[in-house]
Amino acid sequence: MTAGQRLTCTWAVAGRRTGRLTIVGDLDYDHADEINRVLVENLGAHPGLRAVHLDCAEVAFCDSYGLAALLMAHRHIRGVGARLHLDNLQPGLTRLLELTRTLEYLTAEAAPSRAEKFDT
């Protein structure tokens, strides 16, 4: 009953430079690790990405462990020189990110690089 919904993460690439991870379900202690499993696998398979969008339209619930997973995702994405975008944030998640002052940090521009200027 309280174990949360299953979490599904679907990866897609739009062009050579942009990846998109669609997250559906609960980002909680039991499931949130799934994001980084899928991310690490795909970041490795697609070198040269400049932006990764996490589509959060269907994130039903996010607890502190879910937030830790987002922070880890941020590290992985920055690690390959890309920028994280959080798309379609729902009010609950926005509130959590504001409360913890992580929204700005997570979505801040990466140090400008030549590649990025040609992006999108």
């Binding site: 937030l67 830790a68 922070l71 409360l99 913890t100 002052r101 992580t102 940090y105």
Partner: peptide, 13 residues
């Protein structure tokens, strides 16, 4: 009162 979570980001406010 508001502030940054602790232990994950280089700067806190």
């Amino acid at each position: 009162t508001r502030g940054t979570l602790i232990g994950a980001m280089p700067d806190v406010g």
